[in-house]
Design a protein around this nucleic acid. Structure first.
Lengths: 212, 212
DNA sequence: TTATAACCGAACACATTGTTCCGAAACAAG
DNA sequence: CTTGTTTCGGAACAATGTGTTCGGTTATAA
């Protein structure tokens, strides 16, 4: 009577790692790919319709036409689905070699351009209707990028480290604020214009602070 | 058998208005004041312990030692309690005459100072563990302040209006990012240092953009 | 073809929300 | 102090959402 069969969905998978450091997988079984994609797409649709907070797991499985037990065989949470969607956006955050000499904040333009192409997904994940978790993680990643870039561009001795933190926070905060309003459609501008505005406000202050 | 008696808690109240434009009241009945304050304090405590999202209404009424029906006689939501707490912080946002000549972004230092005094409350309401609604509203209010300040300091013709929006977004984004990390204790600095860092990064870019 | 794994869906226990009701207690006014 | 009013407490309730279990069915890969 004891059920010794281990019930595992998503078995023979190869490991991949997303921007969160979580392990994600690419399946060999067609059913698995089908189910996961259906749920992910359903989440994006529902976020754009009602906002992330308002989306329930019941909504998801109805929209995706997936059984309840099936859902929980693949994802632990609503949030798990949210994060799984980030695989597609992760490449975007991986650019920025950080040690290449050049103009400051080189990540800006490519990032705006990439988000422009993925408008729909970006809006769902990064906009106000999306959960704040994605933005928070993006902020974190961007902070290390900016920090490394500044340390590479200027001799580390010229500034006390805690002052550097303050500066990084300012720069990242300005960028993320621009980005959020842009994907939400509250700002109408081309990627080039966004990049120009960001750099115009932020760069002079940074360079003066480093007395270049 | 019909209950014609209108059951209203919180009756003979004088109107007040908070930063959200909602009407709040100061009661003459001691029981009412006692109940409201108990719930508000309970929320602050619980936010600092578990974070806003994790706090349930049941948690609130247990911590505050208040009956369930009593709670719903005073507040509609968890969020309603959150907003009601803002009365204490509202004065902080009301400063900034906006039309007085002087250094740019004069709101910055007083705001950091005031938040430093109200450390505990500020952390609960504005920090990561607090709901994002408060931050969102603060951002909105600050945006109009910054916008008015820039329009007052520079002739409106010198800049296209949509470019102004971009700049305002940058400035507000930088400030709010600093503020959030500061109240969360991720940044250790005095109010004066916070103000200096904010102005150092942001001011040069703004003044150059307006070719002063 | 066949063994296996994924799927469906119902049923379940549990938590949370917001409402209703009534007796008890606190309050303010006279 | 008495009296009429208002608030409080707390149980009970329906409604909704979550996450788990399990037996039967179907799709998949080899």
């Amino acid at each position: 009577m004891v059920n010794k069969q281990i019930r595992r969905a998503v078995p023979y998978w190869t490991e991949v790692e997303d921007v969160f450091g979580n392990s994600r997988r690419g399946s060999s079984d067609r059913r698995v790919r089908r189910t996961r994609k259906a749920v992910q797409q359903a989440l994006v649709e529902l976020i754009l319709e009602k906002g992330y907070e308002a989306v329930t797991v019941t909504d998801l499985i109805n929209r995706a036409n997936v059984g309840r037990s099936t859902f929980y065989a693949h994802f632990t949470d609503k949030q798990d689905v949210l994060f799984s969607n980030l695989d597609e956006l992760s490449s975007l955050l991986r650019l920025a070699p950080a040690s290449r000499p050049g103009p400051l904040f080189a990540f800006s333009l490519p990032m705006f351009e990439h988000l422009h192409e993925q408008r729909r997904l970006a809006r769902a994940l990064l906009g106000r209707r999306g959960g704040s978790a994605v933005m928070a993680r993006g902020e974190q990643i961007l902070a290390t990028i900016v920090r490394d870039e500044l340390l590479a561009a200027f001799p580390p001795r010229s500034t006390p480290p805690d002052s550097l933190d303050l500066m990084v926070t300012c720069v990242v905060g300005a960028f993320m604020a621009l980005l959020r309003k842009w994907v939400d459609g509250e700002l109408t501008a081309t990627p080039a214009e966004m990049d120009a505005a960001f750099r115009a406000v932020v760069t002079p202050g940074v360079e003066i602070a480093f007395r270049r």
